[in-house]
Design a protein around this nucleic acid. Structure first.
Lengths: 120, 120
DNA sequence: GGCTGGTTACAGAATTGTGCGTAATTTACA
DNA sequence: TGTAAATTACGCACAATTCTGTAACCAGCC
């Protein structure tokens, strides 16, 4: 990718949210504070390296707050910032959009007077 | 919500919207019908190949409708489907989220009353 | 031959995964 | 009591995989 700094906010947002993990991490973090190992447990298919990189990316974007506790064994907490929490419902909206478009994808119309299929 | 598919709808949505082009194409298509060459002109940095691939992906996702007119020279129109149009405000919301988090990113207080938030 | 939309073949860039190393402290065990 | 190993959250080097771009080619009518 180039070093192009886009002025389009949508592009900027997508630069952060693109990929498989960011929205998933948001999803797990909306429950509250999680530790690195918690997040790995939540999603066993992320490699530790990628998890660290993604968390760093979200931190840089101001979505996630990283809190390192001094002492050993190491302990680091992650939770959503204000912007991060405000982002959650938007992500959820995308999720429901997908669910609703299922009707369109399967060629059915959503709940209407003409349609009384056995719903899903 | 039930265990509809084995995968999360947010993940499915992001699988389609991830990357640099999908949201940009949505942005250009929300004005109305466009042809392949129009979209290339709108965004000169997409390669011919990628544009075709991305449009195909959006078509498969039910976001974009492809209409090939018979006759030569070839002519193909692209426009948003119903789901595609319903997606636009959600994308816009992500854009305004980014604009509003600017305050947080730049360390300014988000207190606003005399706040002219005109998105770019 | 040129126009348009699209595809294939190959190359190079970017992203992701694997495995090893590290820190200071606790526990395991002989 | 001493030594080894586990723990936790990474960083680094490297391999594998995926993504993107370039260029050429196709179709069929003017």
């Amino acid at each position: 990718m180039k070093d192009v700094v886009s002025r389009c906010p949508i592009e900027e947002t997508m630069r952060v949210l693109s990929g498989r993990w960011p929205t998933l991490l948001l999803y797990y973090l909306k429950d509250g504070t999680k530790r690195f190992s918690d997040l790995r447990r939540d999603n066993p298919t992320v490699s530790h390296r990628i998890l660290a990189l993604e968390l760093r990316k979200l931190e840089d974007a101001g979505i996630v707050r990283r809190t390192a506790h001094p002492g050993y064994p190491l302990r680091v907490d992650y939770d959503l910032t204000g912007p991060g929490r405000r982002l959650v419902p938007l992500i959820d909206a995308l999720g429901s959009w997908w669910v609703h478009t299922e009707d369109d994808r399967t060629g059915r119309s959503p709940i209407s007077e003409t349609n009384l299929d056995t719903a899903a």
